[in-house]
Design a protein around this nucleic acid. Structure first.
Lengths: 137, 137
DNA sequence: TTTTAATTTGTAATTATTACAAAATTGAAA
DNA sequence: TTTCAATTTTGTAATAATTACAAATTAAAA
């Protein structure tokens, strides 16, 4: 994603841009496999030597609150993050541990209510073996 | 669930029964709102004064491995557990924090493969406001 | 009973995340 | 440009769920 696009996205959602915020958001948007906080840190640390993990946590929290990102709770021990342009499904491969985006439609996502409960968020997580790992058997 | 049913369930799935294992499994099966480890501990501690949290963690791990329970990753900071007789959806209320089971059918649950990936587990989490909290507005 | 194996327990270690306050940076006003 | 206030970033320390591990207990087998 172009620098300008990230900048505009932040502005549009009322998040004051900064070098750190732009880099963090950009890395998540670019990297499709939903990097962990550690991965984000390791990668960006090369560019921004003074970067702190606390900044990453702070930024991610803001970006979620402003609905730019969504938390993915597919891993047991850490949170992942998702830039969701359109609603989609997540598939985690048990073997290689990658998290794929799947854009198959699910009628559930159009429901506003279910058994009387008002739905505000949809999280669909599938777990199994991805096509790359599967063929190695 | 009757004592004997829990016992048979454990035996059938090749888990050696014990007082602790039966009580833990029974509590999860009986309590429909998916108690946390802390809640399980607090409740069963009254019955089994010597109970240790480590035993609960050990037992839950075994029960998951033997496919008697499934992990629910709907909470950000702790794991919940589910006794899944038939596949269903989970709905978490943001307001009262209860986790409901919803038995509406979703065609996704019949898919064995998606975009070439082999599916082994289905986790569908909806988040919003439940019907009890909603009407208080 | 004696012995062996499995389970339970308590403590200490691990690890992701948060709280907090100092340092650095930004942006506007003078 | 300089000054000053507000915001952001950073590092350290605290928190809390989970796990590792070994001793104690219990159950099963001989």
């Amino acid at each position: 994603m172009k620098k300008e696009k990230v900048l505009n996205l932040l502005k549009r959602k009322n998040v004051k841009p900064s070098v750190q915020r732009m880099e963090i958001l950009n890395y998540i948007v670019e990297n499709k496999n939903h990097p962990s906080v550690d991965e984000i840190y390791s990668h960006l640390n090369k560019k921004i030597a003074t970067l702190s993990k606390t900044t990453i946590y702070n930024t991610l929290k803001i970006l979620c609150k402003k609905n730019i990102l969504t938390e993915i709770l597919i891993e047991e021990d850490e949170v992942r993050f998702d830039y969701m342009e359109k609603p989609h499904i997540h598939f985690k491969c048990k073997s290689c541990n990658k998290i794929y985006d799947v854009f198959k439609k699910c009628p559930l996502i159009n429901c506003k209510k279910i058994e009387g409960h008002k739905i505000e968020e949809y999280h669909i997580y599938l777990i199994g073996t991805c096509k790359n790992c599967y063929k190695d058997d």
